[in-house]
Amino acid sequence: MEGHKIKTKSKFKVRHQKHKLFRANEPLLSVLMWGVNFTIHELDNVNIPVMLLPEHFKAYVKIRIDNQNFNKEVMPSHFKVKEYCPLVFRAFREYWKVHDSSFRDSLTEPPIPLNEPTKSNLALYQSYDRRFVLKCIAKEDVEQIHKFLPEYHRYIVETQGDTLLPHYYALYRLTVDDKENYVLVMRNVLSTKYKIHYKYDVKGSTVDRSATEKEKLNTCPTLKDNDFLEGKRAIDLGIEQKRIFMERLKRDVNFLVGLHKMDYSLLIGIHDLDQGGVERDQNVSTGDFNTSDLSGNESSDGSESPTQVGDDYSSDEPFMMRSSDTSSRRELYSLGLIDILTYYGMKKKSAHVAKTKLSGSDADGISTVKPEIYARRFLDFIDKHFI
């Protein structure tokens, strides 16, 4: 194999500034765009294996840029980029029909910051076309991903990608101003085309599971379990769709239990067909989006919702389902599992004891419980409120 080689161990290489510049408001995002372009290009020179081997789950590619002549308003003059397990994540992208050129095009335009802070207040972005979520994660999460990745790969192959688990597409370490930043790229669960009118993050627990007053001021706040219950919400899939959905969800949850995972959520995005609205960023030209509804009728101003939804949206919106034909509501649902990396170890066991004492309740209400209990309560909540 000629050209660059992906190694499990490698020395830093010094590269000079290339002609193409990546402009973003934050140095981290400029480096991310540069890094995605570089690592995708490197894969052009690698023979893609028919079968992944154990060493592919340990491999990485990394590079150091050291150029005093960089325009610092565009790009830092010193930075490092490391991509973890490039062939493994490429296999995932291929499995879900996200080709390298498409992936690069989505991530070499400035990502959009999301207003919703993560638990640890780490930054969260989405690609400019909303296809991907870019989540800054802790170093401990990177370790969890490495442990998790071989089993996750096996599961994706066994289920032929028919899963509500996050679709992971890439993992990077970006060193900017001597600070290491870890960025996980995954598919956006929420619809990239249709406006989300209501959004819920549900765990099946009730203690501290209400959206803050500050969160509720957002245009489309992320509501939680208590808000879902107080609003007397129900997700109306109909008997057959619900059966298929619950079978898939139970299979995924059992997989997570086997890996001692807990504290995950079901993200629910609801598009009300009667309210309408096509989601579009003001910085993206309307020509980049298909404003036809799925029945083949073009909307005059891009603001109309589809009047019909068939199977033709499934590849572009893999987490989407439609409300039952007999439902009083005409809705599209975006449904997917998120935040699945939390391992129930000593730290979480201690948190369980502390929360139980603090709340004065048993395990029925708090979110930090044993994986088996968490899974049972989570599935019971979903089964009760999906009809």
Rank of each mutant, 00 (worst) to 15 (best):
M1D: 10
M1K: 05
G3Y: 11
K5P: 01
T8I: 07
S10Y: 01
K11F: 13
K11L: 15
K13H: 02
R15I: 13
H16V: 07
H16Y: 12
L21T: 15
A24D: 14
N25L: 15
P27S: 11
P27F: 10
L28G: 03
N37A: 15
F38W: 09
T39D: 12
T39W: 09
L43Y: 00
I48H: 10
K58C: 00
A59R: 01
K62V: 03
R64C: 05
N69T: 11
M75N: 04
H78D: 12
K80Y: 10
Y84L: 13
Y84K: 09
L87F: 03
V88S: 05
F89H: 10
R90T: 11
R90A: 09
A91K: 14
E94R: 15
Y95N: 07
D105E: 09
P111W: 10
I112Y: 05
E116D: 10
S120I: 08
N121R: 15
L124E: 00
D129A: 03
F132T: 04
K139I: 01
Y155S: 04
I156W: 06
R173I: 01
R173P: 01
R173G: 06
L174R: 02
V176L: 03
V176Q: 07
E180Q: 09
K195I: 07
Y200E: 02
K203V: 05
G204L: 01
E215S: 13
L223K: 11
D225W: 06
D225I: 09
D227C: 06
K232V: 02
A234Y: 03
L237G: 05
K242R: 13
R243L: 08
L249C: 03
R251I: 00
V253D: 01
L256D: 04
G269S: 04
I270D: 02
Q275Y: 03
G276W: 02
V278L: 10
R280F: 04
R280T: 10
D288L: 15
N290I: 12
N290V: 14
E298T: 10
E304Q: 15
S305T: 08
T307Q: 14
T307I: 05
Q308V: 14
Q308C: 12
V309T: 10
S314N: 05
D316L: 08
F319T: 01
M320R: 08
R322E: 08
T326P: 00
Y333F: 13
S334E: 01
I338T: 10
Y343R: 00
M346E: 14
A354R: 15
A354P: 02
A354G: 05
D362A: 12
A363Y: 14
T368Q: 07
K370V: 09
R377A: 09
F378H: 03
D380L: 06
F386N: 00
I387L: 06
